[in-house]
Nucleic acid binder design. Sequence first.
DNA 1: CATTTATTATCGCTTTTCATGATGTTGATT
DNA 2: AATCAACATCATGAAAAGCGATAATAAATG
Lengths: 296, 296
Amino acid sequence: MTETELRHIAAMSAVVDEGSFGRAAARLGYTQSTVSQQISLLEKAVGGAVFDRPGGPRPVRLTPLGRVVLTHGRDLLAKAQAMQSAVERFNAGEGRIDIGTFQSLSNVLLPQLVRRLRQEHPGCDIRLVEDESDEPPIGEVDLMFFDSPVGGDVEHRKLFDDPYVLVAPRGAFPEGPVRFGRLDGAPMVAWPPTCDQPRVEQAFASNGAEPRIVFRAAGNETVLSMVRAGIGSAVLPRLVVDVASSASDEALTVHELVPEVAPRELYLLWQAGRTQSPLAERAIQIAVELAETYRV
Amino acid sequence: MTETELRHIAAMSAVVDEGSFGRAAARLGYTQSTVSQQISLLEKAVGGAVFDRPGGPRPVRLTPLGRVVLTHGRDLLAKAQAMQSAVERFNAGEGRIDIGTFQSLSNVLLPQLVRRLRQEHPGCDIRLVEDESDEPPIGEVDLMFFDSPVGGDVEHRKLFDDPYVLVAPRGAFPEGPVRFGRLDGAPMVAWPPTCDQPRVEQAFASNGAEPRIVFRAAGNETVLSMVRAGIGSAVLPRLVVDVASSASDEALTVHELVPEVAPRELYLLWQAGRTQSPLAERAIQIAVELAETYRV
DNA sequence: CATTTATTATCGCTTTTCATGATGTTGATT
DNA sequence: AATCAACATCATGAAAAGCGATAATAAATG
């Protein structure tokens, strides 16, 4: 038995609408002959006539079997169309995207990225997965921000370098660069030893300075508040400072460090060898564009 | 763009289940090559890859687009299968049949017909449309019992003749045939003047007898009860009497009429030129068979 | 490191199906 | 009887399905 084909059902549906094979053919862009054969094949497939052809100029009429086929068939056609439109929406970027991030990284670039994505694709569904554990949740997300180009099955794109700077209560240091030696024994506020905080403290050690860490907090805003309150200074990526405090913050001064600490790097990661959705592709593109504006 | 085909979606679904093109092919009775091409065509149709093929013995994995297609596609397949099974049930006679009838006609043959249909097709849906109006509801039913082979676009099959007999309270008449003349002025119970009751009264008239109708009721059982109660006699089709009263009904006697009244005829009608469902075909067949047993 | 193994992709070929245009058939209408 | 408006059928060329063989790939294995 031949397989029941969507286009045959479409033909049948059109015939029912139009009341004649010929008009149905015209509507579908086929020949009457073709429709005739399509219906014939459909009838072979379902094992019986779906139309009574009274002959002459009288319109064809559904048989009982035809009613059964039509009912289900239209359902089928509707579903097929739903699928097609879902695919089209997907390809137009109206899908869903899951972006992984770390709180300490996400403050700068992510909000702009999300804003532009939503602008371009109002229908899309953007989910942010924030995870402070050391285990990056890649594999569960489409895209992920991170500060190192993890190994393994992961592709990456470096976005920009974010140099570390010293943030101090106004007056604690004279304007201009500050040598690491000056920080030996100075009171410092810092992140907990996650992320690349260890790298910062490594930098102190290799410059022969041992800071006195008087407070640790994970939130960037919290750390800066402590500094503003004069509790101590902090070594933070520049973008964190720029974003979290206005440039003309009266209570703070920002100093370059000498010698320079290896800057924090920002990467966009995704699972290797995996086809991305158009939305994810676009997200990468936008992220790179935005990164340009930060790379001084 | 190529049209999205059910068989491609089926292939995709199988690939997802089996984790490999080859195994999917085996399951579907295709070659691996064929499945590969089917997926390729499907991908052309939806405008992007649905699988990531990592190469080597690693199983293929769905892309985001693939997930969209699979979700809708499986739905589509389910609907297609639902249609096929509906068609099969229909062809097996598990469909529905609407039978039109008149109460005064239906008591004899119909119950047996329904019983046998249900026996053969336990899943089928039999609906009886009883209509006492003079307008036969043909067109709204598949099959219809009637007492004349209506004209127009109606095909018919004569089932049997049902001769009229006289039913009387025991003792009212001597055993054996009764001449019409004997009924002149006799108390009679009768149907209301619908159906072919007029024909009966016509028979009286043309035989020079004028009965005294003391009661009219539409229900056969009611009429017979009246006769049993001695209120009068009745002229009824034989089958009505046979069915409604046991043959050895102590209170009744049954007499042939002389001269014979043109018997009531029972026809099975259906709309001409219309393909009947297998269930209806079978119903006609059974009705004819049953009719044989009544045709003396 | 070379080999094996488990995969998918591709090529050429045959068979089937699709769609067409021309022609035949049917039954009402004039 | 001729005409008209339907659907059916037939022959044909084009497209696609499906197959078998072969290549290509990447992990696993020795």
